[in-house]
Design a protein around this nucleic acid. Structure first.
Length: 785
DNA sequence: TAAACGTGGCTTTTT
DNA sequence: GCCACGTTTA
C-alpha cells in the first residue's frame, strides 16, 4: 500500500531547493535558444512542440531542475506525467544526473496510471472501492466480460466478448461512465453494450477491482464530484508537466485540465506529427487545441534536429506535408549532407528480405560511400508484426544475429500469469479471477462441472470461490479424485497464506514453495513439448525478480502497472520491430520495408478511419523516416503473400510523396535493366516521376514489360490520388477480356475468369485461381522475355 | 478429460 | 498461411 504521507514528505526530502537556488545553473548551458525558452518560461501554460530528435527530454528535464533550483516548487509539488514506465525511468535518471544526486523526493513523477493508482488508493471509498483494490489486466478483464456476456444469454460468436471489451475501453478512454454514454453509441454490441458496461462496473466493484481505464476515469469522476479533493490537489501540484501530449486521450485530458485549471502552470510537450496512437483513444485534437484550452499559452517550437542528416529530414518533411491538420513545424539541422534516402523495389517480400539481409552484411564492412555499420546500429521497422517473419526466416538462414523488439512481454506469458495467480490467491484469498485461473492448472480433475458446483455454492453462501470450494469439499458436493485435489489446494493456499507472515522465510522461498507444492512446477517438468524448458526458465526468472521487492504484495502491485520487460540481451544484433515500437528510438541505419498500398498505409486504417486514418499512417511514415540518423532505406515489393494468397501490390502512395531530390533509387543487382543497361532507363523522360523511376529500376522492367505498359497506356501514377479510395486502373483492366490467356511473371500462364475493379481474377495453370492487379499481367502472346 | 479436428479471422499496443 | 478458439470424438 502506498504511503499516505507524501504531503509531509517534503521536510525530509533529500532536496532542499532553496539552498540550491544560489548556485549557478550549468543545466542551462547546453540548451539552444528554443529549449532555453521552454525551460525558463515557468508561469502559465506552455506548449512545447518538439519535433523528432530535437532534444525534448533534455528540455523537459531541465525545466524540472530549473523549477527546483529556483525554488518555484519542492520536488513533491511537481506533477510530471509520462506514458510509459520507460519514459518515467529515463526522466528520473536524467533529473538525477543534472542535479548530481538521486531524486528521492519526486513521488509524482510517473505514468498517468501509476499516479492515478496512488491518488485512487487515497480516495477509493468515493467511488465505492476499498483502498486495497486490485488492478485487472486485459486478460482478467476479458474473462470477466465473457462471463457477463454468457450470463446475458448473448451468442458470443456473433458478438465476441473481445469486441465488448474494446467498446468499453473506448468509452473509458473518452471518460464516459455508463450513464453518460451518448445515445449515438446505444446500438453498440447489439444494443446491450451499455447494460453490460453497467453490469461489468458492478462486478468490478464487488471484486474490489478496477481495470486500467478505471484508474483514470475514477479519478476524473472524483475530481468532478468532490470539489474539496480537487481543490486540495490543484493547490498541491504547483507545476504540471506532461510528456507525449499528443498521445493523451479524453480522460487523461480532462484529468489534466481539472488539475491545471486553477494556476494553469502546465507545460505540455509533444509532437502532433508523431501521434500514432489514435486507434487506442489518443486524440491529436488535444494538442491541436491547446492554445484554445489555455488562452495565452506560450508556444515554443523545437525545430533544430540533432539526429538525422538533411536528406532524411527533408524526406520526412516532404511526406508529412501531405497532412492537412498540423500545427506546422519544419525541422532543420546543421549536420552534413550524407546519403540520400534510398528507395528500392523488389519482386516479392522474400526477395526484399534477402536483399536487406545482404545489404546489412555489406554495410558491416563498409562501402565506397558508407562507413561500416555494426549490426546493432541497424534496425528494420515494419508496419505490422507479420512482416517480421520474412526477416527472421532469412536471417536465421544466413546466420545474421537479430533481436525482435516487442512481442509478448514477460508478464504476459502464460506460465508467469499462472504463477502470479497463485501469488494473488495467497495474498488475497478472495481473488476469484485468480482462483478460476488456477483451480485446474495443473490438472486436478476439476472440469466445468466441478467448477460450476463451486460457483453455485459460493454464490449461495455469499463467499469467495475459494471459500466456496472449501465448503464444497466439506459438504461432499464434489466427488472422487477431484475432491481430494481440491481439498489439498484449499489447505495449501491457507498454509501458504500463513507463511506470508513467517519471518523465517523470505518471500522468494515462499514463492518457490507455492509453485512446488501446488504441483505447478511439476506440471512443466513433465511436459514434453519444446517450450516447457523455457517456461521453467521463466519461472526461475520470476522468482529472481521478486528479490527487489519486500514481499509478494509489493511485487504484485508493481507488476500490475509495470508490464514491461526490458530485455538486456546483448551482442551486436540487428533490431526488428514495428514502427510503433520504434517511436522514441533512433538508429544510424534504418530499413523501412513493405511500403505498399494496403500494407502501408494499411487498408484497414483507411477503411475504418478514412482521411483521419490515412493521416495517422502518414505520421507513422514520418516517425519511421525520422528514426534514421545516417542511412534510411525504403523498399516495397510487387508481390506479397497476404493471408496465404499471393497478391500484387502497388508501391505505397507515401513513396510518391518522397521529394525526388532527396531520394536515390537503387536497382537490385542481377536483374533486368541495371543502371546503364540501355533500354531500361529509357523511359525516364519528361514528366518522369520518382514513382516511375522506382518502378523502372526494379524487376518489372524489361523491354517486353515496357512494351506492355505502352500498350496499356502509361498510367499517370504520381498524380495526387484520392486519399481514401484506391484509384482503379481502368485502362489496364480494360486491356483484357474474360477467357483471355495471360501470363504473370510469378504464376505463369492462366486465363482470365473475371474482372473486379483494377484486379483480374485469373485461373493459373499451376498456381490456382488468384486475384492480381492488371498491371502485373500481360497477354500470353506478349510475354516480356 | 484430453487429443484431434475444423473454422474463422486476421494492424498497430501501453497501462 | 497461421494461430487461436471451439467443437467433436475417443
Amino acid at each position: 500500500m502506498s504511503s499516505f504521507d507524501d504531503f509531509d514528505a517534503f521536510e525530509a526530502s533529500s532536496l532542499s531547493a532553496r539552498a540550491m537556488a544560489a548556485r549557478p545553473a550549468p543545466y542551462l548551458d547546453g540548451l539552444n535558444p528554443a529549449q532555453r525558452q521552454a525551460v525558463e518560461t515557468m508561469d502559465g501554460p506552455v506548449l512545447m512542440l518538439a519535433g523528432a530528435g530535437t532534444g525534448k527530454t533534455k528540455a523537459l528535464t531541465a525545466r524540472v531542475v530549473h523549477l527546483l533550483m529556483t525554488g518555484r516548487a519542492r520536488p513533491n509539488e511537481i506533477l510530471c506525467v509520462t506514458f510509459t514506465n520507460k519514459a518515467a525511468r529515463e526522466m528520473k535518471n536524467r533529473i538525477s544526473g543534472m542535479l548530481g544526486q538521486t531524486v528521492e523526493g519526486m513521488p509524482w513523477l510517473g505514468t498517468f496510471h501509476s499516479i492515478c493508482v496512488k491518488l485512487l488508493r487515497r480516495h477509493a471509498e468515493l467511488v465505492g472501492l476499498k483502498s486495497n483494490f486490485t488492478i485487472l489486466d486485459s486478460d482478467d478483464q476479458l474473462r470477466l466480460l465473457k462471463q457477463l456476456v454468457q450470463a446475458a444469454g448473448i451468442d458470443d460468436k456473433r458478438w465476441p466478448a473481445r469486441q465488448l471489451a474494446s467498446i468499453i475501453d473506448d468509452w473509458k478512454n473518452r471518460a464516459l461512465t455508463a450513464d453518460r454514454v451518448p445515445a449515438a453509441d446505444a446500438g453498440a454490441y447489439n444494443h446491450k453494450g451499455v447494460a453490460l458496461y453497467k453490469a461489468y462496473q458492478e462486478r468490478l466493484r464487488e471484486l474490489n477491482a478496477t481495470d486500467f481505464g478505471d484508474l483514470l476515469l475514477h479519478m476524473v469522476t472524483i475530481f468532478q464530484t468532490h470539489e474539496d479533493v480537487l481543490d486540495q490537489y490543484q493547490r498541491w501540484f504547483r507545476y504540471i508537466l506532461v510528456d507525449e501530449y499528443q498521445d493523451t486521450n479524453v480522460a487523461q485530458y480532462l484529468w489534466l485540465r481539472l488539475l491545471a485549471s486553477a494556476h494553469k502552470n502546465v507545460c505540455c510537450v509533444g509532437d502532433d506529427d508523431q501521434s500514432i496512437y489514435g486507434w487506442r483513444g489518443a486524440e491529436v485534437g488535444n494538442i491541436l487545441r491547446f492554445e484554445k484550452d489555455f488562452p495565452g499559452a506560450h508556444v515554443v517550437r523545437l525545430e533544430q534536429n540533432y539526429r538525422s542528416t538533411p536528406h532524411i529530414l527533408a524526406a520526412a518533411s516532404g511526406v508529412i506535408r501531405g497532412n492537412a491538420s498540423r500545427l506546422g513545424k519544419e525541422l532543420w539541422t546543421e549536420a552534413q549532407e550524407g546519403e540520400k534516402v534510398r528507395l528500392i523495389g523488389h519482386w516479392d517480400g522474400e526477395e526484399e528480405a534477402r536483399w536487406i539481409g545482404e545489404e546489412i552484411e555489406a554495410m558491416q564492412s563498409g562501402t565506397r560511400r558508407m562507413r561500416p555499420f555494426s549490426r546493432d546500429e541497424v534496425a528494420i521497422l515494419v508496419r505490422a508484426s507479420h512482416q517480421m517473419r520474412a526477416f527472421e526466416d532469412r536471417f536465421l538462414n544466413i546466420g545474421m544475429p537479430y533481436r525482435v523488439i516487442g512481442g509478448p512481454r514477460f508478464y504476459e506469458r502464460m506460465e508467469i500469469r499462472d504463477a502470479m495467480a497463485y501469488f494473488r490467491l495467497v495474498v488475497s484469498p478472495s481473488d476469484d479471477l485468480a482462483f478460476e485461473r488456477i483451480v485446474n492448472t495443473p490438472k486436478r480433475g476439476l472440469g466445468d462441472k466441478a467448477q460450476q458446483t463451486i460457483q453455485t455454492i459460493a454464490r449461495a453462501n455469499g463467499v469467495s470461490l475459494l471459500d466456496g470450494a472449501a465448503l464444497a469439499v466439506e459438504q461432499g458436493a464434489i466427488k472422487g479424485k477431484g475432491a481430494k485435489a481440491l481439498g489439498e489446494l484449499v489447505v495449501g493456499l491457507a498454509r501458504w497464506g500463513r507463511m506470508t507472515g513467517d519471518a523465517a522465510m523470505t518471500h522468494m522461498e515462499l514463492a518457490e514453495v507455492i509453485l512446488d507444492e501446488s504441483g505447478y512446477t511439476a506440471m512443466w517438468k513433465n511436459d514434453k513439448t519444446p517450450e516447457a524448458p523455457g517456461r521453467l526458465e521463466n519461472l526461475k526468472e520470476l522468482v529472481k525478480a521478486l528479490e527487489q521487492f519486500e514481499n509478494l504484495q509489493g511485487f504484485l502491485e508493481h507488476v500490475s502497472l509495470v508490464m514491461d520487460n526490458e530485455s538486456d540481451e546483448q551482442g551486436a544484433k540487428v533490431s526488428i520491430m514495428t514502427l510503433h515500437a520504434a517511436k522514441g528510438l533512433e538508429f544510424p541505419a534504418v530499413f523501412l520495408p513493405g511500403w505498399e498500398d494496403g500494407l502501408f498505409p494499411s487498408q484497414r486504417s483507411m477503411d475504418e478511419s478514412g482521411v483521419k486514418g490515412l493521416e495517422e499512417e502518414r505520421r507513422l511514415a514520418y516517425v519511421g523516416i525520422t528514426r534514421a540518423e545516417e542511412v534510411c532505406t525504403i523498399s516495397f515489393a510487387g508481390n506479397r503473400r497476404v493471408f496465404g494468397q499471393w497478391q500484387s501490390q502497388l508501391p505505397s502512395r507515401f513513396v510518391d510523396e518522397l521529394p525526388e531530390e532527396h531520394v536515390e533509387v537503387l536497382t537490385p543487382p542481377g536483374l533486368y535493366g541495371g543502371p546503364g543497361g540501355g533500354a531500361a532507363m529509357g523511359m525516364g523522360s519528361v514528366g518522369s516521376t520518382l514513382h516511375d523511376r522506382a518502378a523502372e529500376a526494379n524487376v518489372y522492367n524489361s523491354p517486353g514489360w515496357r512494351r506492355l505498359q505502352e500498350r496499356q497506356g502509361q498510367r499517370p501514377i504520381s498524380q495526387p490520388r484520392e486519399s481514401t479510395s484506391t484509384v482503379i486502373d481502368l485502362q489496364a483492366v480494360s486491356a483484357y477480356t474474360v477467357g483471355e490467356r495471360v501470363f504473370h511473371q510469378k504464376f505463369g500462364y492462366g486465363s482470365v475468369e473475371g474482372i473486379e475493379g483494377d484486379k483480374l481474377e485469373i485461373a493459373f495453370e499451376k498456381a490456382g485461381t488468384k486475384k492480381v492487379v492488371a498491371r502485373f499481367i500481360c497477354a500470353a502472346d506478349d510475354v516480356p522475355f
